[in-house]
Simulated assay, not measured.
Amino acid sequence: MATATAPTRRKSRLNRQGRAAHVFMLPWLVGLVGITALPTLASLYLAFTDYNVLSSPEFIGTANFERMLTDDRFWQSVRVTLTYVLVSVPLQLAFALLLALILDRGMRGLTFYRSAFYLPSLLGSSVAVAVLWRELFGHSGLVNSALALVGIEGSSWLQNPQTALGTLVILNVWTFGSPMVIFLAGLRQIPEELYESARVDGASVLRQFGSITVPLLTPIIFFNLILQTIGAFQAFTQAHVVSGGSGGPVDSTLFYTLYIYQQGFTAFDMGYASALAWVLLVFIGVMTAGHFLLSKYWVFYGD
């Protein structure tokens, strides 16, 4: 009799645990459906409508997408964003890897340095840091004050179309902490025996780096590349604060996300803004899929 009831008790206990698990998951499920899934589907519908928030959406088919083809500011935002991504992400990853290599050599206070270098990644997309950046590169900012000490007269970096985007690139490179910590963890997983064998064979430091470190670190490089590229395409706060929401001067800092914001919350053209957002989503998805397809040619997993 006791033997017959044991499976029933176990089943009852598992059912209670399952119900408890669903109760704990309920807030996340509500958030997923109410905050992510439903608004995403709603924006897909609005992308095919003329909607100004104040009146009901009017279905116009693919007119919003056709409008992009002749929208000069759309193409300018694409150029600015691509330039930002293609320049800042490689520089950021290279700088992060360099510091990870330095920290991996071992030093006193490693935990402190690792935390200190990681801090910019937590603050880099905040409004406070963007305001600080605007003050640093202003006409009378700290950068020009430092240049004046060596006899160089600087200009307002943020008001010059040739340099405004460069300041935002520097800001993104400055947030190297997150990829640096991941690189450091990857470096710790490379067997020391490989370096010892290379040194015995007379390999130089550069040869060790090119033949051992980089190949075994390619999965980490690939992971950081995907994360930082997607993050760079979604950058918004820096450009909005530095340019005052205009994308200036002369649209030189008009990020794609900032243009979406202008269309949706300044011009109240929610239909066009939704179409722009879906183009960005599809592009990031295609780009990420392309990275994965190409990864088989350069990412080494050891098996």
Rank of each mutant, 00 (worst) to 15 (best):
E193Q: 12
A289C: 08
N52A: 12
L280F: 00
F137G: 02
L38R: 12
A94Y: 06
I102D: 08
S12P: 05
G271Q: 10
R134K: 14
T111M: 11
N144V: 04
V33D: 11
P179R: 01
S125E: 04
P90L: 07
L110V: 10
A2H: 14
E192W: 14
R19L: 15
S295K: 05
G31R: 04
G61C: 14
K11C: 05
S56W: 10
Y113W: 15
E58P: 02
L82F: 02
R108D: 06
Y195E: 07
V80C: 00
V85S: 04
L41A: 15
F95R: 05
F265R: 00
S246P: 05
D72W: 02
T36A: 13
I170Q: 04
R114F: 06
L280G: 01
L147T: 06
Q238R: 11
G290D: 04
A130V: 12
M25S: 15
G290H: 11
V23Y: 14
I260W: 01
A232V: 02
L29R: 05
L44Q: 05
F65N: 07
S211E: 11
Y84P: 00
A148C: 01
V53C: 01
T288A: 02
V173F: 12
T237V: 03
V242F: 04
F292N: 05
P249S: 09
P90H: 05
A130K: 02
I284W: 04
F222M: 11
L103N: 06
A21G: 14
T163D: 06
A235E: 11
L69P: 07
P179F: 07
Q262T: 00
L206D: 09
S274W: 01
N52M: 08
S12I: 13
Y259F: 00
Y297S: 14
P57Y: 13
T111H: 13
T81S: 09
F117Y: 14
R188K: 11
F65D: 01
G210S: 09
V214R: 11
S243E: 03
L158W: 09
S56V: 15
V129W: 02
A185E: 10
S211F: 03
R207E: 10
T167G: 05
T237K: 02
L122F: 11
R188W: 04
V250T: 10
H139R: 07
R134A: 05
G109W: 07
R114E: 10
L32H: 08
T36V: 11
S88E: 10
L93I: 09
T288G: 06
